[in-house]
């Protein structure tokens, strides 16, 4: 009896998930639809007579954009880790005077709308010559992730037993040495969480890319899709093929690191 009842729930669950993920199915379906069938009314529900022309367009036109996004994403991850992990170690374990104030500022910083940061950066980068450059984008994108990074690392590092740190100190390790050889290896999981989210945010960024990199030679993939939408609205199978490719990091993230994802979402919002 209970067995049949739970299967009934599973059925509803599958149905709900299907509805929720339908837009993703539709993206894939449209990406392999023949351009001539795109305007069919009603549209084909299944990829009858699929074409991969959209994907070959992606390969021939979008590879530089994808490369730029990869570079920007990795750069942003490196910068975010380098800034946030040491600061979090101090905030969690070294009891600095004014630590609470720093935490408060970080919490506030997350709430600033992107458009406002973009305008400030536009003026600053204009005078520093960083407009339309990859370092400029890395710096701007890192502001999406550094406060989050510090908060996640602080939450995790507070849980490291003090005995571990005193043992390192007794062995004569400096604070930096303790951080590098003891704290960081123990915090591997939070390094993964922060890196994954940072990469994803930098990869997905559109507002900084579209304001700070309007005319550069190297533009990220979000701009690649945006240009497609603006220029040839007819070619939706190429747009959707690009969208599928741009979603690959999110898919990898979910498959490889599902438990980190849920942990990251929760830790960012509810502190223990």
């Amino acid at each position: 009896m209970t067995h049949s009842r739970t299967w009934w729930k599973t059925l509803i669950g599958v149905l709900l998930t299907g509805i929720m993920l339908f837009p993703l199915y539709w993206m894939i379906n449209v990406s392999v639809t023949q351009p001539t069938d795109l305007r069919r009314d009603p549209p084909n529900l299944f990829p009858v007579n699929p074409t991969f022309a959209g994907y070959s367009t992606v390969v021939s036109e979008q590879l530089p954009y994808l490369g730029t996004s990869l570079l920007v994403g990795l750069g942003t991850v490196a910068l975010t880790l380098a800034l946030s992990a040491p600061a979090a170690f101090a905030l969690a374990k070294l009891r600095p005077v004014g630590g609470t104030a720093v935490n408060f500022v970080l919490l506030i910083a997350q709430m600033i709308p992107g458009i406002i940061m973009a305008m400030g950066f536009y003026l600053i980068f204009n005078s520093w010559g960083l407009l339309d450059t990859i370092p400029g984008l890395i710096l701007a994108d890192s502001t999406l992730a550094v406060p989050f990074g510090v908060l996640i690392f602080t939450a995790f590092m507070s849980g490291i037993p003090n005995e571990l740190l005193s043992a390192a100190k007794i062995d004569g390790a400096s604070a930096w040495r303790t951080f590098w050889s003891v704290v960081l290896p123990v915090s591997r999981n939070s390094v993964v969480t922060v890196s994954l989210f940072t990469f994803l945010w930098a990869w997905s960024d559109f507002i900084f890319a579209s304001t700070l990199n309007r005319g550069g030679d190297l533009q990220p993939i979000t701009i690649g899709i945006y240009k497609y939408i603006g220029n040839n609205t007819q070619d939706w199978n190429a747009i959707m093929a690009t969208a599928v490719v741009a979603s690959v990091p999110a898919a990898i993230l979910l498959v490889v690191a599902q438990r980190y994802v849920a942990a990251g979402v929760t830790a960012g919002a509810v502190k223990d």
Partner: peptide
């Protein structure tokens, strides 16, 4: 299934917006 529900949140916003536009 709960894990699959996360997918829309992880997609680039630009991708989600394009899908809905179409």
């Amino acid at each position: 299934l709960r894990a699959l529900f996360l997918v829309p949140w992880l997609l680039p916003l630009l991708v989600s917006a394009s899908i809905w536009a179409w």
